[in-house]
Amino acid sequence: MPLSREPSPIADVLAAANEVILGKETQIRQAMACLLARGHLLIEDLPGVGKTTLAHTLARLLGLQFSRIQFTSDMLPADIVGISIFDRTNSAFNFLPGPIFSQLVLADEINRATPKTQSALLEAMEERQVSSDGQTRPLPEPFFVIATQNPSYQIGTFPLPESQLDRFLLRIELGYPDRAAERALLEGGGRRQQLPALAARLAPEQIPALQERAAAVHVAPALLDYVQALVEATRNSPDFTHGLSPRAALALLAAARAWAFIDGRDMVLPEDVQAVLPGVACHRLRHAHSGALARPADIAALAHGVAIP
């Protein structure tokens, strides 16, 4: 993109990620933007298109401590947050932290778990801390959850309700790789084998600083006008059951800031908002007639009906 003053501060990371995951530049950027905006990412797609690989790759490149939780229908909240065990020697309860005490948590197939377990994860995501047995334990910093979800029409799933979906800053789809990318994949073998060889491009300590810089990207009043115009358009549109919430508007702004930051720009442009809008809005809006979640094309059409003020 033009209009950048300086090269992207995370160009290295992006380049390395693009070498592992072929043909998914946009999704990798979105994932990075989500991380920089201190949000959490929901990847929704069929099994086998590289969701887990993406999460792994990011963890390796950013040097983050990584854990993976494979959700199943018999999973309990304690399997995620941890459990207190009575220690006879000390005559006290000892807390054994669950897999969520990790910098990058991959919550695989989150919609296979029961709502109770799901909400344990989502609460931890929102609060960035875990409360159990009357004690509050902060989660590590940075804390980034990538949840994956199979399309909800598959058998044996508990689709996330809107209120839970709202906890994810962005929702992306990976989709099938294009022909060239798939050929390269076939020739080079599975990607996961490359992962252990990947060197970290950033230290985890650097990430909070990057997040702060992303949050400080300048937003002009004119851009706020545009964000508001977009949000109002979703609320006034007859196509959707309801519009974007104020929290969604905040999410949109935060994501747009991170997107601009990835470009190396010190201000947010309407283009940044447009770029992250489908990711922010798709899982938050439902079609008025079918009740299905909005598609990116619907959101793009909506954005094309809103003049930039």
Binding site: P2, E271, A303
Partner: peptide, 30 residues
């Protein structure tokens, strides 16, 4: 320029459709 089109997008499109005005559009957009 479409009403919804931001400056950077517009400059990019100008560069594609009328390359002779591309640099000027990019400068103006900046």
């Amino acid at each position: 320029r479409a009403a919804w089109e931001g400056p950077a997008d517009f400059a990019n499109r100008v560069a594609r459709e009328r390359p002779e005005w591309g640099p000027l559009a990019s400068e103006a957009a900046q």
